[in-house]
């Protein structure tokens, strides 16, 4: 179990004025959703939280340690990231792609063992992708590729999960399957933070949300207090209708 904390964090988007400083704590068992219109910096935030980008100011701490002072390998044992874009330079099979998740856990001289392969297969099984095992990743459909990416992080098994639009390209069934998986991981003590575009998924599956406004302001809190139609309308600049279904708010753009 790990805690990811930001102190007065301001993300760095070149040519853009600094937005609100973020002081968030992602605790074990929590599921956070990051909402905001296109280009507001959701991906930049996720990459900053993963230590891939330097913030303009402030810090990110993982279990009290400054992320900037930690080696990449140590970070990778605690924190995983599902990317929005996939760069597949060289041909690789689905199984090989899931298996790279074991990289941070193996020493340079170690070959992947049968147990590592087993973990990769379990992860693919979990993502309903085990039948694709021998396919080359660049021949997969968008949704299949997305499931394989999630399987890679499942194989990595970090305590902190960052996901950049995990439901991208997924059909309805797999969207729900991924959300169920993330809730289950949170139930097992993982901390989850994901960029999302679907308000209804956020309303149903997240505990906390962070709203990022186009002018750089941001606010965050429990999902029920944050997801108000008036706030969301100004967030997206889009009129919405809200209703309730089985005790859960539902938003429909109009």
């Amino acid at each position: 179990m790990s805690v990811l904390k930001t102190d007065e964090l301001v993300i760095d988007i070149p040519g853009r004025a600094s937005g609100s400083a973020l002081s968030l704590t992602l605790s074990p068992g929590e599921v956070w959703g990051v909402l905001g219109p296109n280009g507001v910096g959701k991906t930049t935030l996720l990459h900053t939280l993963a230590g891939l980008r330097t913030p303009r100011s402030g810090q990110v701490r993982l279990d009290g340690n400054l992320l900037a002072d930690m080696g990449r390998r140590r970070i990778a044992r605690h924190l995983g990231l599902v990317f929005q874009e996939h760069q597949d330079g060289f041909p690789a099979t689905v199984l090989e792609t899931a298996l790279v998740g074991r990289h941070p856990w193996l020493s340079p001289w170690q070959m992947e063992s049968a147990s590592d392969l087993g973990r990769a297969r379990d992860a693919l099984e979990r993502m309903d992708a085990v039948d694709l095992e021998h396919r080359l990743v660049h021949t997969l459909s968008g949704g299949e590729r997305q499931r394989v990416s999630i399987a890679t992080v499942l194989t990595q098994d970090p305590a902190i999960w960052l996901l950049d639009e995990p439901t991208n390209h997924l059909d309805l069934h797999h969207q729900v399957a991924v959300m169920k998986l993330l809730r289950e991981l949170a139930g097992a003590g993982r901390g989850i933070l994901m960029g999302l575009h679907d308000l209804n998924l956020a309303a149903r599956w997240c505990d906390q949300v962070l709203l990022m406004f186009p002018d750089g302001r941001a606010c965050w809190g429990p999902v029920r207090e944050m997801l108000l139609p008036s706030v969301l309308e100004s967030l997206y600049g889009q009129p919405l209708k809200a209703t309730e279904l089985d005790g859960c708010p539902v938003f429909i753009p109009v």
Binding site: G51, T97, V100, H103
Partner: peptide
């Protein structure tokens, strides 16, 4: 030789490699 697996990860792109623990 001991860098082989790390190079395999690097071949997947430098951001992916960084997230998987490679000092790119």
């Amino acid at each position: 030789f001991p860098l082989g697996r790390t190079l395999n990860v690097l071949a997947r792109g430098h951001v992916q490699a960084a997230v998987l623990g490679v000092s790119v």
